[in-house]
Amino acid sequence: MGRLIAFIILLIPGILAAYGIKLMRDTLFNKLLEPYPALWLQFTLGTLFVVIGIGFFAGFLLNRDRKKGTVAEKFQKRPQK
């Protein structure tokens, strides 16, 4: 059950990033989608969606690898004083 919940939590940012890539692609082909009033706004939101989606996924992997102890020295958490 825990793995299913983790999969769903990772699936949502993945879908968000894929939608962001679609928005940026449609902007490059000069296709304005319905809820967006301008191409520049569509491209900006697409970029934001991609950064948030990939950033969440990368943070999840970094946190998991820190727990396992498989990250390089510079990515280890420093002990609190």
Rank of each mutant, 00 (worst) to 15 (best):
F60Y: 13
R64I: 04
Q80R: 14
L62E: 06
A17L: 05
I21L: 13
L62T: 01
L23N: 02
T70V: 15
F49M: 10
V51S: 11
G53M: 05
A72I: 05
A6M: 07
T47V: 11
K81H: 02
Q76K: 15
Y19F: 14
Y36M: 15
W40N: 10
M1H: 07
I54Q: 03
I12H: 07
T44A: 15
K22R: 10
Y36F: 15
M24N: 05
K67L: 14
D26M: 15
M24R: 11
F60L: 01
D26R: 13
I15V: 15
L23P: 01
R66F: 07
K81E: 08
G69L: 13
L11Y: 11
M24G: 02
F56W: 09
T44H: 04
K22H: 07
F29I: 14
I21G: 02
I21V: 12
P35R: 08
F56D: 01
P37M: 11
F56S: 05
G53T: 05
R25A: 14
I15P: 01
R3M: 13
T47C: 12
G20L: 03
V51A: 15
K77G: 03
G53W: 02
I52T: 06
G55T: 06
F57Q: 07
A17I: 04
W40M: 03
Q42H: 08
I5D: 03
D65W: 11
M24S: 10
T44V: 09
L32F: 08
A17V: 07
Q76Y: 05
P37S: 15
G59S: 08
I21A: 12
Y36A: 12
T47K: 10
R66L: 13
I52K: 00
L32H: 07
R64H: 11
P37A: 14
Y19G: 08
I15L: 15
L11R: 05
V50Y: 04
K68G: 03
G55N: 03
E73T: 03
L23G: 02
I54R: 02
T27M: 12
V50K: 01
I21F: 09
N30F: 09
G59Q: 05
G20T: 03
L11S: 14
I9V: 14
V50P: 00
L32E: 03
M1F: 05
G55H: 08
L48Q: 06
K31W: 05
G20A: 09
E73H: 08
I8F: 13
L62S: 02
N30M: 10
R78E: 10
I8R: 11
A38G: 00
G14R: 09
F7P: 00
K31H: 15
P79S: 13
M1G: 12
L39N: 03
K74H: 13
V71E: 04
Y19C: 12
L11D: 03
G53Y: 02
K81Y: 04
F7S: 13
Q80S: 14
F56A: 07
G59D: 06
K22T: 10
R25Y: 13
K77T: 05
G46C: 08
A58I: 12
I9F: 12
N30E: 12
L61T: 03
R64Y: 14
K68E: 11
L32G: 06
L32S: 06
P79V: 03
